[in-house]
Design a protein around this nucleic acid. Sequence first.
DNA 1: TATATTTGCTTAAACGTTTAAGCAAAAGTA
DNA 2: TACTTTTGCTTAAACGTTTAAGCAAATATA
Lengths: 339, 339
Amino acid sequence: MKKKRTTIKDIANVLNISPAAVSKALHDDSRISAKTKDAVKRVAKELNYQPNHLASALRSGKSNLVGVIVPRTNSNFFSSVIENMEEVLNKEGYNIIITQSNESFKKECDNIDTLLFTQVDGIIASMANETVDLSHYEKIKSKGIPLILFDRGENDLNVDYIGIDDYNSSHIIIEHLISKGCKRIAHIGGYRRTRIFNNRIRGYIDAINKYNLPNDDALLMESNLTLEDGRLKMEHLLTLDTPPDAVYVASDYAALGALQVLNEKHIKVPQDICLVGFGNEPFTSLVSPTITTIDQHSEQIGKIAAQTFIQRINTENWKPTLNKNILESRLIVRASSSK
Amino acid sequence: MKKKRTTIKDIANVLNISPAAVSKALHDDSRISAKTKDAVKRVAKELNYQPNHLASALRSGKSNLVGVIVPRTNSNFFSSVIENMEEVLNKEGYNIIITQSNESFKKECDNIDTLLFTQVDGIIASMANETVDLSHYEKIKSKGIPLILFDRGENDLNVDYIGIDDYNSSHIIIEHLISKGCKRIAHIGGYRRTRIFNNRIRGYIDAINKYNLPNDDALLMESNLTLEDGRLKMEHLLTLDTPPDAVYVASDYAALGALQVLNEKHIKVPQDICLVGFGNEPFTSLVSPTITTIDQHSEQIGKIAAQTFIQRINTENWKPTLNKNILESRLIVRASSSK
DNA sequence: TATATTTGCTTAAACGTTTAAGCAAAAGTA
DNA sequence: TACTTTTGCTTAAACGTTTAAGCAAATATA
């Protein structure tokens, strides 16, 4: 009475051949005749045969699962990266398991344990803000499975990395603001311990110096880049004796917070203060005024990350090594900096 | 030279007992002495034993994986539902595989195939807009694994469902608008073929009639509820001979589109036209004016969906049956309807 | 004391594949 | 013709668990 699923053996019995032959036929092994292959495939279809993924994974040592770790899925950047990764990986026969760290170090460690436990064939990750200790990532490497980082990476891990040129993005932004006549440009940046944010800060400082703009300590602030903290940092900037005439914020969310404060205080954007965000989240084109921002090429990042994984998994005796894939970022000029 | 992972056999060899005893000790079988259990657990830790998930899944027929299908992850509602689902399921030893349908029927079918192929122990899903044919969902049921639907469900499938009371939500909204003095209330709704949107439409119509408001066909429109279509439908409403003095939109995204049009045409919200959205997406409190909307209890929906799955999986010989779990929705009044 | 029950393990098969090794028949080569 | 090679399969082991069945020793019961 119990529903038994069709196995390779059932097909073998019908055709009076061995299960091994069936397996090979289904995999188009060159040592199986075309006639047998056709017969096997016909019967497989007739019996509605569905391969048991677990069995083949166990035997072959491959799960065809790729683990993905992102800070959160509800940002458009990460969800777009994932979507594009998925497309490439599905085509190659891989499925993905998405996990979220919520920017928490502990959750990230748990996620890695979970993914390793699930026997994923590799992990593609973007690190949590909190993460400083890298030992859990080393654990992945020591398992011998590919580890690919994107956006939030870390040189010390010596693995593949895909991201945009954060340092140069700051230059592009500063140059844009200067072209609009801005003379006192503030930066609400992320935490320096996170490499990408440190790069944006370095780029900001170097560009400021390059063009002989005031390099005032009060104009550079570290933030967790949430909307709320964007508000607080903007409010603080407005209390300065000489407030900035432009603010470059390292995340669209914090930029939105800053914009809210400016709107509430009836400070005109861009006339009084120009505002630039980072990330090209959809809402940047929805709010008023629309926010100038940097596009991070989420589609490309997702695709390249997936392709890199495929390459690594298909290379015998691959030894991880630092391999940075840096994309040019693109400035999207909108109302908040168009005066 | 090749890195071999520790197996149950290695532990057995160290302690000179059988692998079976080790397996039972690790599972706290009552027929294993406390002494042996302690020894096994000690050695397991020493050798850094990591259970092979695939092997146990193959043998026991359980993968401890739950498949999740959502239209997209980058809406706050779905990502919050998932987060809460995950919390409950992880505690019970389950991991989740998240897939996105992008509102596409074909992608949804593919996702189901993928999940079944991966041998998930159950599927928790919210249906794509396009989905009308239910045969692929029937496929899940015929596998005998639990299927739980949330938000976007379908009575005809006769399975567990968790969602809010869409019909009543419309009543709450209409009553709120009437209390603000609105007399001509339009509804930009979803497609009637999707149950939840049909319920919102029915609720709208019944409430309108109940309070003797104008039941004008031109005031009720079906939409795919994207931001762009929200814009189009709003523009159309403004061309009417007597435009509405309030618009209830069945999705926050479309409501935002409508708001953009109103702002661009300098029509005052809420003074000239009141606006109400649906879903409590974060941006509704970020835009200007902030948008009145309905909170869908994403946390509860996620938790209950997960708990329902756990219940089903733990009940022997469970036969799926229609079981609706309807939560009260909550109106969040903001500026767009506060005159 | 004799018998029944419980405890604590072992043995061996099973889950559904893949794959190395092997072998007979067919085809190719000298 | 006698050999080598290729073709098309089969056999059997393996992947790392779980679990039903079984058995001896320890303990409980009468």
